[in-house]
């Protein structure tokens, strides 16, 4: 474990908690894409299959449980909570996210480190995580008005992946056999997807104006 990875995990945890807090306190999911949340629940479900088979550390197991419970809770809130579901704008959240699942799965079948069920599911979860934010970014572009919590949520998600890139660089130089091209390229693609959001987020923060994404 290194400081970049710990900071990345904490930022990732913060992003999920910010979202849960928003939905739980103001009982609203306005501006949140259910599709992105469903994709994240699928990412964790397919990535943490080894939750009970490979014990790595208490931290690792605890964090996996937190991410699984929180991501499925968010999906539950938006779909089934009697008050929250009313604020879900399904007419705007129209990204065909199922079109993301199949290509990621097919790619995982072709490009993976080992052709085993667990490894293919793990690789699938990496590719899916890289594109999971797309429905949310499309929704932000469409609704144009970004409330602070949603902006913070997307910012923290991007920051977590950026910190992970620093973690991979650090591990590459400190651990001789640490080479995971699939993880690195997938993580880089994911971070690049946030780049334009970051740009507008910083612009709005610097000029102290409301965050607006160009149409």
């Amino acid at each position: 474990m290194n400081i970049f990875r710990l900071a990345g995990d904490m930022t990732h945890l913060a992003s999920v908690l910010v979202l849960l807090l928003k939905i739980h306190t103001i009982k609203s999911c306005a501006g949140i894409s259910l599709k992105t949340q469903e994709l994240y629940a699928l990412v964790f479900a397919t990535r943490y299959l080894d939750l009970f088979t490979d014990y790595i550390s208490l931290y690792n197991t605890l964090m996996k449980l937190i991410f699984l419970v929180s991501s499925f809770s968010i999906v539950w809130y938006i779909r089934h909570h009697k008050i929250v579901r009313r604020s879900y704008d399904k007419d705007q959240d129209t990204f065909r996210h199922y079109f993301l699942v199949l290509p990621c799965f097919l790619l995982a079948l072709v490009i993976n480190e080992k052709f085993t069920v667990k490894e293919i599911m793990w690789t699938f979860s990496l590719y899916l995580e890289a594109v999971a934010i797309l429905p949310q970014l499309v929704l932000l572009q469409r609704t144009r008005n970004i409330d602070n919590l949603t902006g913070q949520y997307v910012f923290l998600l991007g920051a977590y992946r950026s910190l992970y890139i620093l973690n991979w660089i650090y591990r590459y130089f400190t651990e001789p056999h640490y080479v995971h091209w699939i993880t690195w390229i997938s993580g880089l693609v994911q971070t690049l997807l946030y780049a334009d959001f970051f740009y507008y987020y910083f612009q709005s923060w610097k000029n102290n104006v409301k965050l607006e994404l160009p149409a």
């Binding site: 990875r5 995990d9 990732h12 080894d50 490979d54 790595i56 996996k64 991410f67 973690n167």
Partner: peptide, 10 residues
């Protein structure tokens, strides 16, 4: 046991 192919990152 963290053998070679176990992914130790979240």
């Amino acid at each position: 046991s963290v053998d070679g192919d176990v992914h130790d990152e979240l």
